[in-house]
Amino acid sequence: MEQMTDIPTETGYHFNVMRRAIDLIDGAEAPLSLEALAAEMGMSPAHFQRIFSRWVGVSPKRYQQYLALGHAKALLNERFTTLETAHATGLSGSGRLHDLFLRWESMSPGDYAKGGAGLTIYWGWFESPFGLALVMGTDKGICGLGFAAEMGEEGAMQDLVRRWPKADYVEDPMRLRPWVLAAFGAEDAELRQAPLYLIGAPFQIKVWEALLQIPSGHVTTYSEIAESIGNPRAVRAVGTAVGRNPVSWLIPCHRALRKSGGLGGYHWGLPVKRALLAYESARAEA
């Protein structure tokens, strides 16, 4: 890793605290007390609870319940989204994600077939609430976001680069920084613009468009996505397209579950998927 750009000042400090706390909670065999978590963070229990609750929206104790193995099934029962009606009812516009992105567009099929030839992609490493994140973007918006927690920094970099092997890659984290701040919830209104630039095959783009209709804190199934794009038998192909989503977190593939309530797969690691769902559920409740 050549360079890493932190989320600055107080926001960056809180993100680092939350990242460490989530890692600790997720790796514990049993629920951790407030006192134990605070001690690991080097804080008083009151100070840690205040910071955690401000960022997540609920207490550490309540958040740990969202990380329980049965949480995915509960989400399907309580917050299942029918994609065909989500947009019509305005539900898809109520999530934080859709407030952040003022615009998004996709590369033409012909340009995509060129493997990124003639395209300049800027990249940088950033600390995020869900671990170290690799962010990539063009002049038009964020085109890639991956997490290194499970596959490591080199693996994450190779994973994104090989999607567009003929592009020119330029390390420039400061160029991406305003979009990254918006993507991970910076409060400064002037920074709340994080446009997306989707680079994929036409079928993949359709699936990713469907994912963008799932409100924060809600989930759907792979079969529901297939129905919504007019190809109900393409559940397996939909699953592949979900897994190939290059912009994790922002194109919310973590909100797609199996009909059984199982988490299914997640390209960047199931612990990351559980953390993303838990965070969004907590925020929705708050």
Rank of each mutant, 00 (worst) to 15 (best):
E2M: 10
Q3V: 10
T5P: 06
T5C: 09
I7Q: 14
I7W: 05
I7H: 08
P8G: 02
T9K: 12
T9N: 14
T9E: 14
E10C: 07
E10G: 06
T11R: 11
Y13D: 10
F15W: 13
N16V: 07
N16I: 07
V17Q: 15
V17C: 14
V17N: 13
V17W: 00
M18V: 15
M18R: 08
I22L: 13
D26K: 11
M43E: 14
S44M: 10
S44K: 14
A46L: 05
H47V: 00
H47P: 00
Q49F: 03
I51T: 15
S53K: 13
W55I: 11
P60W: 00
R62L: 12
Y63T: 00
Y63K: 01
Q65T: 12
G70S: 15
H71D: 11
K73S: 15
L76H: 01
F80M: 11
T81N: 00
A86N: 04
A88G: 05
G90P: 12
L91N: 08
S92G: 15
G93D: 05
L97V: 09
L97C: 03
H98Q: 14
L100G: 04
F101H: 10
L102Q: 14
W104P: 06
W104T: 07
E105H: 10
D111A: 14
K114V: 00
G115I: 01
G115H: 10
G116Y: 02
A117P: 05
G124C: 13
W125V: 12
E127V: 13
S128C: 12
F130Y: 14
L134F: 09
V135P: 01
M136G: 13
G137L: 12
T138I: 04
D139G: 09
K140A: 07
K140N: 05
C143I: 02
F147K: 01
M151I: 14
G155W: 02
Q158F: 02
D159C: 07
V161R: 10
R162T: 02
R162C: 03
P165L: 01
A167D: 04
D168N: 11
Y169Q: 12
D172F: 05
R175K: 14
P178H: 08
W179E: 01
A182G: 08
F184V: 15
E187C: 02
A189T: 10
L191C: 07
L191G: 08
R192P: 04
Q193A: 12
Q193S: 13
P195I: 11
L196F: 04
L198S: 09
A201C: 06
K206R: 15
K206P: 03
V207M: 09
V207Q: 09
A210V: 04
A210K: 06
A210L: 08
L212S: 13
L212N: 15
Q213P: 03
Q213I: 04
I214A: 04
V219Y: 03
Y222I: 10
I225S: 13
I225G: 13
S228I: 08
P232I: 01
P232Q: 05
R236M: 03
A237T: 07
G239N: 03
V242A: 05
G243P: 03
G243Q: 06
R244W: 02
P246F: 08
V247Q: 07
L250R: 11
L250W: 09
I251C: 15
C253L: 00
R255V: 07
A256K: 06
L257M: 12
S260N: 12
Y266Q: 05
W268A: 09
W268G: 04
G269I: 10
V272W: 02
A275D: 02
A275P: 04
L276A: 03
Y279D: 11
E280M: 01
S281E: 06
A282M: 00
R283L: 11
